[in-house]
Amino acid sequence: MSHPHAAISCRGIWQVYGADAPQQLKRALAETGNDSRAAAALLRERGLVPAVQDVSFDVLEGEVFVIMGLSGSGKSTLIRTISRLAEGTAGSILIHGEDILTASKQRLIELRRNKLGMVFQHFGLFPHMTVAENVGFPLKMQGMSRTDRRARALEMLDLVGLSGREDAFPRELSGGQRQRVGIARALAVNPDLLFLDEPYSALDPLIRRQLQDEFLKIQAGLQKTSVFITHDITEALKLADRIAIMRDGVVVQIGTPDEIIVNPANDYVREFTRDVPKGRYSHVSSMMNMPETLPAMPDDPKIGEDMTVDDALASCMALYQPVPVWGRDGRMAGIVHPSQLADALQVERT
């Protein structure tokens, strides 16, 4: 059922808070004939809190999977369930095919020491350790020697642009620098999976943008499978390969940034994307088509399918006829009419 290249595969995850939650959930599902929405309503009525309801998705190898939602939507709970910082109420979570909800305590510690890294909203730096000791902490847990830890920590700090601060204490660093340490620590064991829980939410907008750019740069080099939590739609659109939008504990849409912008699943999603500069985050590929017979195309502004709509429009704005779109392989991938691109930029008025 799950995708063959899935690094993480979640099926039917429930996280319900309250007394005797697993039994209550079973009962509610039985009473409603496995209708998850109705079951959640029933649980709520009985004084329980269904924070995450029947969530399923796959995260592919090497992709950045962003979970976006407002506060209280259950996104933080979801990432804690996946990383098993919180015990899920129901469902299965496979990491590289291994069910981690049933993993033993020992196995879990092993997984965390070798395979998983996590970055926290408030950094989670240990106040009594220097920067280098913080970054070296997961390596210490692996049992690495002091000198090797130090070497690896310096290497990681270099990667995040903090060389020279290795002997500072966290309290001596700015917010942006602290989160760089957090990222260096998460990457120190070279994990297969990276969990990032609103890593940039506590930072100033300028610093945030800078760190986002650095994340993209690091990601381009390391290709880590990442689950990234945010409440900021522009951050999601900028960083994601795919986005899951959550509301009240339910995933309302999963798709690429283009799909989210061009084909919002419902009004809630549309409302989110309303003020987003769409031309910057959608690509020509999501708008072009390939007719049976090609119309006359006197001009070729050399538009590629990977171009953002903004960039494409800039080069064909003055044209009134369809133009060809060229694929990565150099062949024509489709055609697009400049007016189509312009229409897509219209801010919807409701």
């Binding site: 020491r113 890294g117 909203q121 989670g124 240990f126 106040p127 997961p138």
Partner: peptide, 29 residues
């Protein structure tokens, strides 16, 4: 002790006694 610090220790693969002795007690210093 801040939840983030606690969780960071868990996610780094510390056992319960390591969390307590290496992270939580020093943080509460």
């Amino acid at each position: 002790v801040e939840p983030d610090i606690r969780e960071a220790a868990i996610m780094n693969g510390a056992t319960r006694s390591q969390q307590l002795l290496l992270v939580e007690i020093p943080s509460a210093g």
